[in-house]
Write a protein that binds this DNA or RNA. Structure first.
Lengths: 125, 125
DNA sequence: GTAAGCGCTTTCCTTTAGGTAAGTAATAAC
DNA sequence: GTTATTACTTACCTAAAGGAAAGCGCTTAC
């Protein structure tokens, strides 16, 4: 027996289109930290150590690498101020602000998801 | 010289809150494939091989692993139909549909981002 | 002189993700 | 009996992510 579900594949291009978009977006935003770092800097410009304190759990090595990556992709800017000693302040670019809706939706969803997990833990106990 | 930026740390809880939300969301949605697979199945229920054909580049091993993971987290349901031979059809759950806005925003952004990359490639050549 | 802070870098290591290729049990078609 | 299909699993491997801890060049504070 053979079940044919999509003989003519309705709206397949549209489907493949958004699939590709999502894959492309995830390609630059991959990893555990990128979106969190962008959010952190969109809220206010910060120094290296301030970022590390705020984003709990990230190591200096990984932070340095991710900041370089984000700068290369035009999400943040590294400003060096000629104070003594120099102060280095990272700020979010205009382009990173185009991610605001993405981050907003992700934050809303993350909160709801945490609630859901808590409830399912209660049921099990 | 010392630069004091946030003496009293304004709205820091709110900031840390959404940061945590984003981190929590990324924790379940990590990896290259999860959101793409959810999108694929939200559009219509499919069989294993159909998914593998649609999501270009995923291997059967990784697909099997990701599907198990998504089922455990209640994003998809594995339906076994007693045809001969059995047909196994994966469908998106109601819960996975709560990700619709996230995926929508990500798709929109991904498309814009691809355009931006194209343009910056043109400038360089 | 000693200690501490800043913004990292370096080294070493473990974990995870992910890919390739082959295999398998069950069934059906030829 | 041979081949094909479905839905995987298994074994093996590489590359990348990520963590811990130490160090470093510079400067200021004590």
């Amino acid at each position: 027996m053979k079940i044919v579900i999509n003989e003519v594949l309705p709206s397949n291009e549209e489907c493949a289109g958004s699939l590709k978009n999502v894959l492309d977006a995830l390609y630059v935003l991959n990893g555990k930290w990128k979106l969190a770092l962008i959010l952190c800097l969109v809220q206010s410009s910060k120094r290296f150590n301030e970022i590390q304190n705020e984003v709990a759990g990230i190591s200096s090595k990984v932070l340095a690498k991710e900041l370089k990556d984000l700068e290369l992709n035009d999400f943040i800017k590294r400003n060096v101020y000629p104070t003594t000693p120099v102060s280095i302040i990272y700020e979010a670019t205009e382009y990173s602000r185009t991610l605001k809706s993405v981050i907003g939706e992700l934050s809303t969803w993350g909160e709801q998801h945490r609630e859901k997990i808590k409830q399912s833990m209660r049921k099990q106990s």
